[in-house]
Simulated assay, not measured.
Amino acid sequence: MQEEIEEQNKYALITGGSRGIGRAICIQLAKDSKYRILINYRSNKNAAEETLREVVLAGGQGELLPFDVVDAESVNTSLDQWQENHKDAIIEVIVNNAGITRDGLFMWMKPEDWNEVINTSLNGFFNVTNRLIKQLLINKYGRIINMVSLSGVKGTAGQANYSAAKGAVIAATKALAQEVAKRNVTVNAVAPGFIATDLTSDLDEKELKKMIPANRFGTSGEVAHLVSFLASEKSSYITGEIININGGIYS
């Protein structure tokens, strides 16, 4: 009975969980784990509520947790308030998924397009993880999973800002993993290639799949299965890794 109560107080937080890969991760974790799902979103409440409905349909439980990962004060205020309302709860899994793109050739890139992308992926990772990691270390268990990208691994023309942001998170993943491994906290990154989501709907899939050995775009569900494994106890000896899921594209 006590173990059941403890399980009910364990949560997985997915930033940018309202759509696309984030939504798929929320649903998969609801299916595969006993974690309650915290669905973070910035502005699209309707999409977040739809994700929550799908989490419940998948047999899970969850709640919405709105904040902007870029705004450290907003992150801290929201998480402090949540913890105040859930005194015995622990966020045991952190999936840093929030990210945006502002593509364009570097020579014409506006400073705001550079800064917004860096702030969301890199500073967003810091703001959320830095606020929560102490609890993981105290409890001597945790899973931190950073969603990066093929662009961060090999670089993509027209995405210097996105490649820089994701590349920095990759480096931070490797460094942080070494700091916290002795406390049974793993830190890994998942680097998707071309995945069929809203973000890639404008791309020429027919042309692009010629460069993919698997000859197709991946699905958000395939990415979510990988994240779900990394969030589980079964992945306890994997840390500091950048796992590509890209149909065979390599730099």
Rank of each mutant, 00 (worst) to 15 (best):
I138N: 15
K140C: 01
K140R: 12
K140T: 02
Y141G: 05
G142E: 12
R143I: 05
I144W: 01
I144V: 07
I145W: 13
I145A: 12
I145L: 09
N146H: 01
M147I: 05
M147W: 00
M147D: 06
V148M: 04
L150H: 05
G152L: 04
G152A: 03
G152E: 00
G152T: 02
V153Y: 02
G155D: 00
A157V: 14
Q159M: 07
Q159L: 07
A160E: 11
A160K: 05
A160V: 10
N161R: 03
Y162R: 05
Y162S: 04
S163E: 01
S163P: 09
A164K: 04
A164S: 11
A164V: 02
K166L: 14
V169W: 05
V169A: 04
V169N: 03
I170E: 09
I170C: 12
A171D: 06
A172K: 06
A172C: 06
T173Y: 05
T173G: 11
K174E: 07
A175K: 08
A175C: 14
L176W: 10
L176C: 11
A177S: 15
A177R: 07
A177H: 06
Q178H: 03
Q178G: 02
E179R: 02
E179F: 02
E179N: 00
E179L: 07
A181Q: 10
K182Q: 10
R183S: 15
N184D: 08
N184L: 11
V185G: 09
V185E: 07
V185I: 08
T186V: 01
T186G: 01
V187T: 09
V187H: 06
N188F: 04
V190K: 04
V190P: 11
V190Q: 07
A191G: 03
A191L: 01
F194Y: 15
I195M: 14
I195F: 10
A196P: 07
A196N: 13
T197S: 05
D198F: 12
D198P: 13
D198C: 14
S201L: 04
D202K: 12
D202V: 12
D202P: 08
D204K: 06
D204S: 05
D204N: 14
E205A: 14
K206G: 12
E207C: 10
K210C: 02
M211Q: 13
M211D: 10
